[in-house]
Nucleic acid binder design. Sequence first.
DNA 1: TCCTAGACGCGACAGTTGTCGCAATAGGAG
DNA 2: CTCCTATTGCGACAACTGTCGCGTCTAGGA
Lengths: 197, 197
Amino acid sequence: MPTTRRPGGRTARTRAAVLAAVEAELLEHGVDRLTVDAVAERSGVHRATVYRRWRDVGGLLADALVAGREDDWRPGDHGSLTADLVALNREVVEHLAGPRPVSRALILASYRSSAAAAALRDFLEDRYRRCEVVVERAIERGEAPAGTDARRLLVAATAPIYHEILLMGRGADDALAVRCATDAARAAGAGVFVGRG
Amino acid sequence: MPTTRRPGGRTARTRAAVLAAVEAELLEHGVDRLTVDAVAERSGVHRATVYRRWRDVGGLLADALVAGREDDWRPGDHGSLTADLVALNREVVEHLAGPRPVSRALILASYRSSAAAAALRDFLEDRYRRCEVVVERAIERGEAPAGTDARRLLVAATAPIYHEILLMGRGADDALAVRCATDAARAAGAGVFVGRG
DNA sequence: TCCTAGACGCGACAGTTGTCGCAATAGGAG
DNA sequence: CTCCTATTGCGACAACTGTCGCGTCTAGGA
């Protein structure tokens, strides 16, 4: 993450140029072939400068993804807990195995880059926090008992998706998203995620 | 995976030397610093040969782990579904965040090496198949209804562990293992994993 | 307007990854 | 034992990753 001790004209210009180059490289060569050298050359910024400010590819990726993320995202209301979780799981599947697997790239980078790891953590934490409203609505509807731990329920719904796609090498699978969502919703209805944090 | 078109003396010798070197490097420098060059130099086999036969570090890792895996592993019987799942989750935690995170290394390598990805898939598939007996015992004890999908239950129990440790960067956490196991066991008891494969 | 510290350009350096062509060698079939 | 060829050794090559020192520029405050 670049420091902001001197946010002035040139510094801002180089940052914009580099991030634009990252974007272009991602579009052109895909996320797996993103390289510091290519970004430096395309942006016209010197290699050493990129290394100094972003440290590695993970830093570039993290900065680009954080800069480009939509801050107004909210989970939709689809009328039932199951439907809400299905919608969330479909988003996860798309982020992991869709045509532009940004989450997959960030996860990959997180193994070698502390900046990417931190960005990934922040992103997921933020998402789970925003999704708490889904659980609140479910409790209001009577689909889950009061005291249901939102975070635990949400992880139970999404974690198997990560497991199957990242670890077991399964491709985009809509049935998987539906099944994991319904299982988690049923477990929540049975009061599995109440108490004992 | 090396071909066996010529399993004769020299080929077998180089393979043994390389795998021994992998073992030694793993013990000496840990799994994160395993490098093709070091393995080649230690084994006395030329770099190019190692690259030709194993393709990359992931290939080495996969071959070494497949060669060295214990074929007699079985899940223990701890008297209850919850206890059985807790024991399994503790093993997962150790493999991921323990002093010798072999699973973590294999997962890391699987992102860049098809051989490692295949080995990881095989390993997990094999593990889940062996663990089906845990679910069978639970059904016999009346802890879960007949028709409970073993694979789904097992993934529900372990996937959150992978999620928290690999993605959220959490360290070895015994409470996490216990919580995920009890949640999954309670869900199974409520009949969540029955039917609709 | 001037001064300074932070940011950048430049080139060199060392290390790792992975590939290639060619020559030498050693299994295994006959 | 002889021949054929799969396998290996060898060295060169290209690309990427990070780092370093040094000189230059420029933004932002006095």
